[in-house]
Structures are given as structure tokens and as C-alpha cells.
């Protein structure tokens, strides 16, 4: 599958940029673009932010995920405590980051 020129990858690696993540994702949707977001490592703490669930709903099940291993490493229960707004299938591996690179024509890290 070729990268979609209207799809924006947002790779979240820092735990302190939720305002930017939400701001950029919402702006992308306003511009008629499609955000695709992956949270990894310590950024998984942002799943506990009240703005995470609306973000997940904005992106849709196929286009937002978190690294399940990171979530577990940070002390959360990736089986019993799936973040609000996500399903078990959105608890993913680093392969989802590969999907971001493959599917998205544009890319930003936060």
C-alpha cells in the first residue's frame, strides 16, 4: 500500500505534549486530513489524560494505538486496564509505528 498523501502520522514519544497532540490531530481533521497516532514509551501516561478518549474517538479504532509493552513497563495492566477510548486490538507493538511510516504521507514526532 502506498502512503496516503492526506494522512498525517503523529508519533508520540514524550509525556508532556498532549496539548500539541490534540491540537495537531484536530487541525488535521479540520483540514480534511486523517491523523494516525501511536503513543510509545513514557508517552503512554497520556492515556490517563481526560483528552485521550476524545482523541481516540476522533481518530477511530484503526488509526490510534499505544505500545502495549510500554504500557506494561510503566506499571499499568495492559489486560485489565485498557485505556478509555481504546479496545484490546489497539494495544499494539512497535509494528504500528511501521504502519504509520507505510501509510502516512506526512509525519511528525511529539
Amino acid at each position: 500500500m502506498a502512503a496516503d498523501p492526506n494522512k498525517l502520522a503523529i508519533f508520540v514519544t514524550s509525556p508532556q505534549n498532549m496539548t500539541h497532540v490534540v491540537g495537531i490531530a484536530e487541525a488535521a481533521v479540520r483540514a480534511g486530513k486523517k491523523p494516525m497516532v501511536f503513543f510509545t514509551y513514557k508517552s503512554v501516561h497520556l492515556t490517563k489524560d481526560a483528552r485521550f478518549k476524545p482523541l481516540a474517538e476522533l481518530c477511530g479504532e484503526e488509526d490510534i494505538a499505544i505500545c502495549a509493552d510500554s504500557y506494561t513497563c510503566e506499571g499499568y495492566d495492559s489486560a485489565k486496564d485498557i485505556p478509555a477510548g481504546l479496545t484490546a486490538k489497539q494495544m499494539r507493538t512497535q509494528a504500528f509505528h511501521g504502519a504509520l511510516l507505510d501509510e502516512c504521507g506526512k509525519y511528525i514526532v511529539l
Binding site: 513514557k42 512497535q94 509494528a95 509505528h97 511501521g98 511510516l101 507505510d102
Partner: peptide
């Protein structure tokens, strides 16, 4: 120093043929 998890992230991409 606390973000050397980036090495694991690079490995994840290598496994995906990058």
C-alpha cells in the same frame, strides 16, 4: 539518559524492513 528506549523503537522499525 531515560529515553534509550529509542533503541528498541529503532529495532522495531528494522523488523519492519526499515
Amino acid at each position: 539518559r531515560t529515553y534509550n528506549d529509542g533503541i528498541r523503537s529503532a529495532l522495531g522499525l528494522a523488523v519492519e524492513n526499515h
